[in-house]
């Protein structure tokens, strides 16, 4: 029993880290740009496909792929922000959401055209397949690695936002755009930079997911974006701390749900979300509006 619980928690934590990677970029972009990006899940998916492509056609070194793939997706993020999103900041919310939704349709379809409608399987990644015994049962080392990456990204983000000049500018811009502009920051450039960085986080999640899931499909973005949304709601929209905690809780809860009540795994999440919102309508770390 103990063994089973520990393994479920670990599995949940590693799943939660992927949600966190997507939710962190989503939250950062929302916090600074004020736009909720439906296409963020597509960046995750594209990160995974690009990683697969590099592995397949460039070389079998996963780490090289992990370096190249997210950066290549950043170019797409740049295009989306610079040539489209930038022109709808002043429009009403539904238009912004629909614009990012249009990109979901476009990217999903493009991915199907480029990589086929079914799933693709990356070449052999057996070097990452090691396991370690925890309480007498084997657990994949790679998943432990993922559990390490999440907090690392969180710590990095925190240091960046709190301790660096750029971080302070970003925080200033998220609370008051005019103020940031008045101290000589080019707000449009800053927005582009933040969007591209958020894209990178999402794509990194996708790249990391390739050995974890073992196959890449077009649907993977749509699933994770919903989970990232739920996490953002639970944690409080715009709060990175909330997103991190929310992702871990959601990951673990879903793992328990799948293991013990397979028919109702999402239902637990729903109860969690409803409970949090009834007590704290603004989410765990959201500020009351």
């Amino acid at each position: 029993m103990m063994q089973s619980v520990v393994h479920t928690v670990l599995a949940g934590l590693s799943a939660g880290m992927f949600i966190w990677l997507v939710a962190s970029g989503l939250t950062l972009i929302f916090g600074v740009l004020g736009v909720l990006n439906f296409a963020h899940g597509s960046f995750y998916m594209l990160g995974a496909y690009m990683c697969y492509t590099v592995l397949r056609y460039v070389g079998p070194d996963f780490w090289v792929a992990l370096l190249i793939a997210p950066l290549s997706v950043c170019i797409i993020g740049y295009v989306v922000e610079r040539w489209f999103l930038r022109y709808v900041y002043h429009l009403a919310l539904p238009y912004q959401l629909l614009l990012t939704f249009a990109f979901v349709l476009i990217f999903d379809n493009l991915a199907k055209m480029v990589w086929g409608a079914g799933s693709v399987t990356p070449p052999d990644l057996s070097t990452l397949n090691g396991t370690v015994s925890i309480l007498g049962r084997n657990f994949p080392v790679y998943n432990l690695f993922i559990i390490g990456v999440g907090p690392l990204v969180a710590a990095g983000l925190w240091l960046f936002l709190e301790r660096t000049w750029y971080g302070r500018i970003i925080r200033a811009a998220s609370s008051d755009r005019e103020m940031a502009a008045s101290i000589g920051v080019s707000v449009p450039a800053l927005f582009t930079a933040v969007f591209v960085f958020g894209t990178w986080l999402g794509a990194l999640g996708g790249g990391l997911a390739v050995p974890y899931v073992g196959l890449v499909t077009t649907g993977m973005g749509e699933t994770i974006i919903i989970e990232a949304f739920i996490v953002a709601v639970i944690g409080g929209l715009g709060s990175l701390k909330g997103a991190f905690l929310g992702a871990l809780v959601l990951g673990v809860l879903t793992a328990f749900g799948t293991r013990f009540f397979p028919a109702f795994d999402m239902f637990l999440t729903f109860i969690l979300m409803a409970g949090v919102l009834l007590v704290r309508p603004q989410g765990l770390f959201g500020t009351a509006r």
Partner: peptide
């Protein structure tokens, strides 16, 4: 809630119904 919070919440709740229908 209103605005984006309302949009997100309804989205999340809708997907809960989806997963219920899918799983049950």
């Amino acid at each position: 809630h209103t605005e984006i919070y309302f949009a997100m919440l309804t989205l999340a709740c809708g997907m809960m119904v989806f997963s219920f229908v899918w799983n049950a």
